[in-house]
Amino acid sequence: MKKSFTLIALSGIIMTSCVSKKKYVALEQELQDTRSTLQRTAVEKDELEDKFAKIEARVADYNAKINSLRDESNEKMVMVDDIVAISNNSKEKMRETLTKVDPNKLQNAKTLKDSMNLAVSHNLKSSLDDSLKDDEDISINIDNTVVMISISDKMLFKTASYRVSDKANGILQKLANVINSEPSIEVMVEGHTDPRTISNAVVQDNWDLSVKRATSIVRKLQNKYNVAPEKLIASGRSSYKPLVENSSDENMAINRRTKIVLLPNMDKFFAMLSAN
């Protein structure tokens, strides 16, 4: 009886030991499987994050392309009459400017270039009015599509001289600022005299004086105020283009003047638009 009990107890211990070992092996396998699953999950997570980052980058790239195409569309050059090209943005700016132009002058604009001339001329005159409006010896007008500035000779020169006086510096500086701000214009400087004949050691006649005065202004604009020389033209008209009859000293003083003509250069203007 005692032996039987001992055998039964021993068998129980052995069986318990076998079951515990099986559970241990099973648990260890389960742990290993869990670790493998976690490892795979971590790898998959990294792969998903990498894919997501790539998708985000592609979306950002597409958005940038969309914005770029939108900007290009606004700046795209549109052909008009197979000759003139102008961007949508520039057309909007031109329309805005033309709303401020005299309607009578707009009626004479037959082509887009005419309209562009008017727009540029209007902007130039506005800039000059702001800069020179306090100078009573200066008049600014638009004739067709050019801006004309007439400056009394007493503002620029001494009597019978073609040397530019110091008091002209302020006017020429303001004028140069406007010229330099507009790459699309050329500048013609015209000298005008009254009919009284002048002849001395340095000036041959009124033709000579009018040309030398214009050349002096051109040199000053180039050398002192950095106006590009290729934009400048010097000419003299002697006494043959008076504003009023030379019937009095006052009238002759009006006719003694320097006229500065600002000419919008449409070829340069449209080349500038294309470059931008």
Rank of each mutant, 00 (worst) to 15 (best):
S216Q: 02
L262P: 00
N265E: 03
A228C: 04
A271H: 10
I185P: 04
L48F: 09
L98W: 03
V19M: 06
S127N: 07
D166V: 09
L128E: 02
Q32I: 06
N117C: 07
T97R: 10
I86Q: 05
V261K: 06
T159I: 11
G170W: 10
V25A: 11
K259T: 15
K91W: 13
T99E: 12
K105V: 03
V101T: 02
K268H: 12
S139G: 05
E96Y: 13
K224N: 15
A253D: 10
D135S: 08
N123I: 04
Y225R: 02
A64Q: 08
K259R: 13
N89S: 12
N206Y: 02
R35H: 04
A214W: 00
R237I: 03
S165W: 08
R237A: 11
K100S: 09
N104P: 02
E186P: 04
K110R: 15
R256E: 10
D153C: 08
S210R: 02
N265S: 11
F270N: 09
I185M: 05
K259D: 15
S150K: 15
D137M: 13
V202P: 03
V146C: 00
V202W: 05
R95V: 15
K220L: 10
T97Q: 03
R40E: 13
T34A: 15
L31C: 04
N169R: 07
K113W: 04
L172H: 08
S152W: 07
K268P: 00
H192G: 01
L156P: 05
D135L: 14
S87T: 11
R257D: 01
